[in-house]
Amino acid sequence: MAISPLSSSARVARAPSTATLSFLSSALRDLRVSPPAVSSFAQSRNASHQAQGRANGAKDGAGKRLGAKKTGGEYVIPGNILFKQRGTHWFPGDHAFMGRDHTIHAGVPGYVRYYRDPDRHPKRKYIGIVFEKDQILPQPAHAVRRRRLGMLAYQMPTTASEELTDDLVATDSPTTISALPNTIGLQSTTAISTTPPTANSAAAKAIRRSSRIMEGLGVTLRPGYQYRQPNHEIGQAAERKEAAAQAKGKTSRAYDEYKPGDRFAAWRKSGVRIARNNERRAMGRGKKGKK
């Protein structure tokens, strides 16, 4: 800004005019390192402060509704929230537990107790549950803990095994499930063999017999609880189909059997393939054929 007129005037090789000199001196004054002795005014930044928005921290947010939700002695059921807090001002005592955000919950039905237990921890405050109104916490040291079963006994259903066996065809095969593992019938019928069948065992014979029975389907229980044909059977399916066709004097193959090195057959086959492709292209599927 100040330099460009100076440099343009310096290129002129005539005697400088007074206007040019005064301009130069002012330009040189600008380039001086030491400030002039007397300044007309003191430069300073104006006070500016972000007055709006969240720059200074929210002073007055919404309340988080923390604190005690149940008073001492109040009846609660499992899962009830006893105390909401940030951090652990209170710890879960007997039959209470702490949730994800340090909330204290009740673990059993009973009455709330707020207490300290110097034997457990000298400084912590606990919230616990007692079963009866007159019981207090903490319990004396070395006393048997108060516990409730909270369960009822039921007769186990034993009919499930019969229902299940009706559906299955080959019940003697160890690969079939004769009973659910958690149903209880007679010991002999529900025993599920855990040892692998050896070659001569009755179980192995049963497997062979069952595979012979289900020859047409060839479906057995494979590892991973899959009822399906084994992979080697699937792989032999084409050969088996061809053998059946040959027995009738036909063939199931589209081409002759592959012989390595038979170039004439290969040439004929490629000719057929090229002709079929040309024909398909001529049908004009989309723009690809036109291009």
Binding site: P78, G150, L152, M156
Partner: peptide, 14 residues
């Protein structure tokens, strides 16, 4: 008691 099964008792809600 081998055919006895235990199940949780229902706690009446408040």
């Amino acid at each position: 008691g081998w055919d006895v099964e235990f199940k949780r008792k229902r706690v009446e809600p408040l």
